[in-house]
Nucleic acid binder design. Structure first.
Lengths: 144, 144
DNA sequence: TTGTTTTTAATTGTGCACAATCTAATTTTG
DNA sequence: CAAAATTAGATTGTGCACAATTAAAAACAA
């Protein structure tokens, strides 16, 4: 019964920290008119310029029920365009727009700002990231 | 600019893993008709029997905008009761009901089930939990 | 080639999260 | 004490998340 205590759960600090971390991003992202999941989409687009909804979903572990309305909002604000693929009409390709590219300049400082608020060493951060990613990959194998 | 890559972010695996972990709980919680945040409330109530909304919010890092409707749903399903405190009418106290207490029996196995699906040692789990909690507490100091 | 299966998105509905605002009750101050 | 400030919770509105369903296109099979 002892295991049914909040303090003995791994999942709770994961859940709480995840939300608090996005709260840490919020003031910076507000200036860019982005939410955290939208920021993640922008990270992908800044790197790849063009991606299908499917690919974005695979990278971010999100499905179309989340992404379709999110991407529509981002299309409305002009950060990207959504176009049916001509070769395969099932696919919707998301393209980075000029405004979307411009926004990258405003975002370059964000990771450093966040890091400086974490009171943690680069080494610790790196090892923590590695552990979490490893766990995530374990789950990936099961699910799909 | 390198830091603006998804793979170099701590926050992303945190965000993705947090969601995948609650997905891991989902099949077990579905049997109890609980969502993950509702399960967290039950963990608190199984331990404390009676708590104010404020106290629950402090423990779970959630505000009344989230908790009020969540607790109302749980009241409707009979797991708890909500009563204005007589000594201080601003306060709403949440009490564990008999059905809520009963539910604990069905939940005892969950932590073990989850652990067995994680492919991780108890030592690793404990150390990870400690690191995440430490980070969370760092943020706590800033925010409030 | 036709029927079946799979794949990709969109849609619908429910339940969080959280900012912002509001109300009422209590505490603090002058 | 009365006015001002604080506190607890509720409400409203927006944006995720995700299950379940639908629709259309493509791949596959007989």
């Amino acid at each position: 019964m002892d295991q049914l205590h909040l303090q003995n759960q791994l999942c709770f600090p994961l859940y709480a920290l995840s939300r608090q971390m996005t709260a840490l991003y919020r003031p910076y992202l507000d200036k860019l008119d982005l939410t955290y999941p939208q920021y993640l989409v922008m990270l992908l687009l800044w790197e790849h310029e063009k991606l299908s909804v499917k690919k974005i979903g695979c990278e971010l572990w999100l499905d179309s029920g989340t992404l379709t309305p999110l991407l529509k909002r981002m299309e409305e604000t002009g950060l990207l365009t959504r176009d049916r693929c001509v070769e395969d009409e099932r696919v919707v390709n998301v393209h980075l727009s000029k405004e979307g590219r411009q926004l990258q300049k405003k975002a370059v400082g964000i990771p450093d700002h966040i890091f400086s608020e974490l009171s943690i060493s680069h080494a610790q951060l790196k090892s923590l990231k590695k552990e979490l990613s490893a766990l995530l990959n374990n789950l990936e194998k099961k699910g799909g």
